[in-house]
Amino acid sequence: MELICPAGTPAAFREAVEAGADAVYCGFRDETNARNFPGLNFSREELRQSIALARRKKVQTFVALNTFMRAGDEALWYSAADDAVAMGADALILADFGLMAYVAEKYPQQRLHVSVQASASNPEAIRFLVEAFGAKRVVLPRVLTVQDIARLTRQIDCEVEVFAFGGLCVMAEGRCSLSSYATGKSPNMNGVCSPASHVRYRQDGADLVSELGAYTINRFGPGEASGYPTLCKGRFEIGDVEGYAFEDPVSLDVIDEIDALRAAGVSALKIEGRQRGKAYVAEVVSSLKKALGASPGERAALVARLRAMSEGQRTTTGAYDKRWR
């Protein structure tokens, strides 16, 4: 299985390549990608240089243009696709059907991957994307069990990529409006979940309080591991109960399922984390690369230290090994 690794900056890109990535995915510094955070992402020239570096090292570059085009502003997404193709991107990761149609018509030879943001999770939807736009790979939403994935891969005629490690969204990828409700901005349309402009942290005695817009998201006690300020991982009072309404602050780790995923027909494992630093990228990519080549018994030890770098300092197998609360 290929290891698909994140890069938010050219420095992180180099780290991913050196640490053993088979492919690195990244995006432009604008709303065309779902990690549109300040100071992050690539200028045209930086991407050109990064693709050239990857080529020399026999590593592929996937360019994520995985937000949904805003009516009237389609030119931003079209020009990003034009530039990525001209620079020699090995694949474009797309979510918007209109953009898929544009790329499929204008660049029929360009390899097209279906982003997780497209939320394609059943054989009918995926077959449509393959037939209509020539999609070569689908990145599955993190809503399926390993058994679901195995059933799905048998019914479709394209490669399957799944998330293996990193940040974990609740189960409405590409359709989540929680961030929009609180801030007016969303990952789907603006490329930002919980935009930093609306995030505030404050110390209240020994507690850390995180706020998003007008909402208090969480209050972490002394020494308690913290998480991202997203509504889906907020701790709320519901009736008489205080707790995590949607999901705990926790990261995905399905390294224990590598063999089952391979047997299920998965072609590539994806690491989430374009918003993370190069130290994280280097550590996670090299650990997972080693884990892929290790025996099942050795894997847990190889990735155990990554838990400390994870949101909430805890990991879960999420929906892959469905054990609902």
Binding site: T9, A12, P38, L208, F220, A225
Partner: peptide, 27 residues
């Protein structure tokens, strides 16, 4: 992010500016 999760670091004020600085330094 890892140091923030472990509570080794704390950040206050304009988070956009802080994120931009973090990313600029990282690169």
């Amino acid at each position: 992010d890892a140091l923030f999760f472990s509570r080794d670091l704390s950040v206050t004020g304009d988070m956009e500016a802080m994120l931009a600085l973090r990313n600029a330094l990282d690169d």
